[in-house]
Design a binder for these strands. Structure first.
Lengths: 349, 349
DNA sequence: ATTAGCACTCATTTATTTCGAGTGCTAACA
DNA sequence: TGTTAGCACTCGAAATAAATGAGTGCTAAT
């Protein structure tokens, strides 16, 4: 992604200056202001000419005649791409320690969202890792009372799920033991998509009169695997958007905050992010680039983390287009690597 | 809670009219408007006199000179108390069917919040039942891999919890079986506060060399029981507050929505509600009456439901003081009784 | 006890003015 | 040819003023 060669060095400097200034102040930037940038000793008039060019090229625009310039989406894009290239080779020395390790994944993720929001002043989200293409580690059926069995299913990564199964009959302890054995010997270590119809039929056959229970268990497995259903999304700092006037008129605020409350759209965003090529990198969506229409006036920056065994999740922040991309990307990277590390090196739950 | 006797019949009628009109329109109500109330044939002048009296008594006030009147908190209070008395004897014929039964409590509660929000246009919350003073129904330890045991704990009401326990040693199947037996025979059916120190000591003794594991399990039980930690709160329609101008200035909106995102304050509210005498009734907090300072400009209406075996939770709605109390209370009652019924009559999970 | 009538108040709306930051363009200059 | 000083012009934002009208309190008559 080479920087557009059609821009002279000077134009680039000016564009950068405009963007940086705008990020800081939130006000349109005028030629006069740019004059004061030490490294370019030019009169405002000259700068005006250059700005006119930049506007023609689509990198900046005026919110109205006789106002300073504001970066366009295209301008931001260029800026972010430059940032990315710079960062590429830079060694990110990590000041770790943002997260406390605890034994519940859920808590860590909740905390991650919170920390991220506190560090950036934007709205943040963290998706729980999707246990797709994952392996079954362990199954245990237990009789709870006369008509109920609880199936506990442990997936790779120690994700534990359970489901109550109603049974007409009461199973003897012995039979239950047998079923457990059958299920575990057959299924343990299997990845989800290895469980074929044939296998299921064979299992049921072996279960004999208890094939019905086996059916229920497999249904439970299927249900538990079902991704959409399962993805939890933790959010924090949604109200940070009130800090940015361009997002806090009733209309926008309501839309964005609704998205954070309902979470469906965030889930879509996560799905999209995970699906994209550029995994394990940082992704930046500016304005219309975002997959979620509600956020067309925002920028969205996401990163993918991996909790071992291919369980990927997304952390992301949503804020105004005039966002401190540099800081955000850095923070996101730090958190990402912390999450990557936290359970991979020293798995606990 | 008798109606203040110092109010003449006519004043009451007028007060009611003012409140009802204000609930509908959200505009201060003037004497002229009240004229049109068929049942009282009075000139605006007379009504003005009565209104002046009502204002002296503190039931209504003017947002500014030369505006109509608005009910004060005291006015609302009186109105709501009257409503309560009316409703007391009224047979609430329930148009059930708001909720679909599913096997996950969580889903039902989520849905409840959503339905409530959709039905009222206010912000809503539903707290998961607190499994305090509850009974242990079943415990199952299973070896997941060399160093990990998963403890599955089923509480009364079929709340299932689990916790991974790290063990240094590998337990033989046989020993595990013994431990399970020991735990279940000793603990099943016990209410939480029957598990005393003495009992714990005895258990550990019987467990012999595995007393450590028993210790972990009991820790897990304790942790799981811990109320605060556990109360989930589902919310919906927080952005409904944008529909009410009096709550949607940046300041208020931010505060209220933050409360809905952080949930801590809602948890406090729930605790308060559950602690209050008037359980299983409907509680109405108007303005300053609310236990949560963030909502001092709102009204909060809550109801307690019970998912069998003493597991109580709260459903509530938060909206502007000018709230359709009648509708809200009715909807809340319906939902409350549905929740009461849904798992009590025909327990599923 | 009720009401018609009137003067008065004050938030809200609309119109008018002022102000100034910033531009584009032209003409002069190195 | 690139740079710059200078100037007329634009237009949003803020300030000011005027018009509107819903609603009141009070008085005097019924």
């Amino acid at each position: 992604m080479a920087v557009d060669a059609s821009l002279s060095e000077r134009k680039l400097t000016i564009l950068k200056a405009i963007i940086q200034n705008y990020l800081e102040t939130g006000e349109p930037v005028g030629s006069r202001t740019l004059t004061k940038y030490t490294d370019l000793n030019l009169s405002s008039a000259t700068i005006r000419n250059e700005m006119a060019d930049l506007e023609d090229l689509g990198y900046i625009f005026q919110p109205h005649t006789s106002a300073g310039r504001i970066p366009s989406d295209k301008g931001y894009r260029l800026y972010v791409d430059m940032l990315m290239e710079d960062k590429e080779q830079e060694i990110t020395e990590r000041e770790n320690g943002l997260l406390e390790k605890t034994d519940k994944v859920e808590k860590v993720l909740r905390q991650a969202a919170k920390v991220l929001a506190a560090n950036t002043n934007y709205a943040t989200m963290v998706s729980s890792p999707v246990n797709n293409r994952n392996t079954l580690k362990f199954i245990q059926l237990s009789q709870v009372d006369a008509e109920q069995i609880v199936a506990v299913i442990v997936l790779g990564g120690n994700v534990i799920k359970n489901k109550i199964i109603e049974v007409g009959e009461t199973l003897s302890n012995e039979n239950l033991l047998k079923l457990n054995m059958l299920l575990n010997t057959t299924l343990n270590g299997m990845s989800i998509d290895q469980i074929t119809l044939g296998l299921i039929a064979r299992l049921k056959e072996q279960a004999g009169i208890h094939s019905e229970v086996v059916g229920h268990v497999l249904d439970a497995v299927a249900e538990i695997i079902h991704v959409e259903d399962d993805m939890e999304i933790y959010t924090s700092g949604a109200t940070n958007i009130f800090k940015y006037p361009e997002l806090s008129d009733k209309q926008s605020a309501q839309e964005i905050i609704s998205a954070f409350e309902e979470k469906q759209q965030l889930a879509d965003l996560v799905t999209e992010t995970l699906a994209s090529e550029n995994n394990h990198g940082i992704q930046v969506y500016i304005g219309d680039e975002t997959p979620v229409k509600t956020m067309k006036d925002c920028s969205v920056v996401t990163a993918t983390y991996e909790l071992g065994e291919g369980m990927k999740g997304t952390i992301g922040i949503i804020g105004p287009k005039r966002m401190d991309y540099e800081h955000v990307m850095k923070t996101l990277k730090t958190l990402q690597s912390e999450l990557d590390a936290i359970y991979n090196k020293d798995p606990k739950e």
